[in-house]
């Protein structure tokens, strides 16, 4: 008799990009995350929402082991990317951070040219042989980040000379250039005006065809607009996770409702 995986298992395998099991994080004595269990679905945008200090950034940093570099930070529990433990012995954190890229609240281009900003990663990761190939990666990445048309004549100008919104898209291009699977964004629009914000939001919708996106945002409307799944964090724990439309019309938990409707006090 042959065994066939049941449909439920197959779709699980297909849907889940990252699984988090019983994740606990401490900064010194202080515990910041408490037994977090969360699945991040492939090719979707997942929003992490919750009050300041609830552990959203801490969780995000666990996904590509950025907490490793924070002194006194201790992580316990299991995070698997495509089924593989990110804390596995053979996992190189630098490689992991290429696969799971990150975009920060404040755009942080290197003080180098636009071209260099994007080419740097592929070069150190050995993704290209020679200038022509690098050029191609730079162009494709800038195109995917929706920035190429605006900067194609300024590739040698400093990245820091771009507008805030352009700088943020440059950072997205930089993350894309090293061929990630997952892009983490920690409040990527909080320093941007509504137009630049709208461009990043549209970009997320395009990018999710290729990548899995996790975004931290304090804007309920942004979470509602851009994501398919939303997780609500409170006091270091996941209170509720679910389909975004459902969570914003009929949250399961009273604490979620109180937070998204501004009843928290």
């Amino acid at each position: 008799m042959t065994t066939i995986s049941r449909p439920a298992e197959r779709s699980q395998l297909y849907l889940t990009k990252i699984t988090t099991r019983d994740l606990n994080v401490w900064y010194g004595e202080k515990q910041a995350l408490f037994s977090v269990n969360l699945d991040i679905e492939r090719n979707r945008v997942t929003s992490l929402i919750g009050p300041s200090g609830c552990g959203k950034s801490t969780y995000l940093r666990c996904l590509n082991r950025m907490n490793d570099v924070i002194e006194g930070c201790r992580v316990e529990g299991k995070i698997a990317l495509d089924g593989d433990d990110v804390h596995g012995e053979d996992v190189d954190p630098v490689q992991l951070r290429a696969r799971v890229g990150m975009v920060f609240q404040k755009p942080n281009p290197f003080p180098k040219s636009v071209w260099e900003n994007v080419a740097y990663g592929p070069r150190i990761h050995g993704l290209a042989t020679g200038r022509a190939e690098l050029d191609e990666i730079v162009t494709t990445s800038l195109e995917r980040a929706g920035l190429f048309a605006e900067v194609k004549d300024r590739l040698d100008d400093p990245g820091t000379g771009l507008s805030g919104g352009q700088q943020q898209r440059l950072c997205i291009a930089r993350a894309i250039a090293v061929q990630p699977d997952v892009i983490l964004m920690d409040e990527p629009c909080s320093a941007l005006d509504p137009i630049a914000t709208a461009r990043i939001e549209e970009l997320m919708e395009e990018l999710r065809a290729r990548y899995t996106i996790v975004i931290v945002t304090h804007s309920m409307q942004q979470a509602a607009r851009v994501s398919q799944r939303t997780a609500f964090f409170h006091l270091g724990a996941v209170v509720e996770e679910g389909e975004t439309g459902k969570l914003f019309t009929d949250p399961r938990e009273e604490r979620t409702r109180d937070y998204i409707t501004g009843r928290f006090g």
Partner: peptide
Amino acid sequence: QAPVADDLR
């Protein structure tokens, strides 16, 4: 107000 949850309903 961009209401959500019971406010929206």
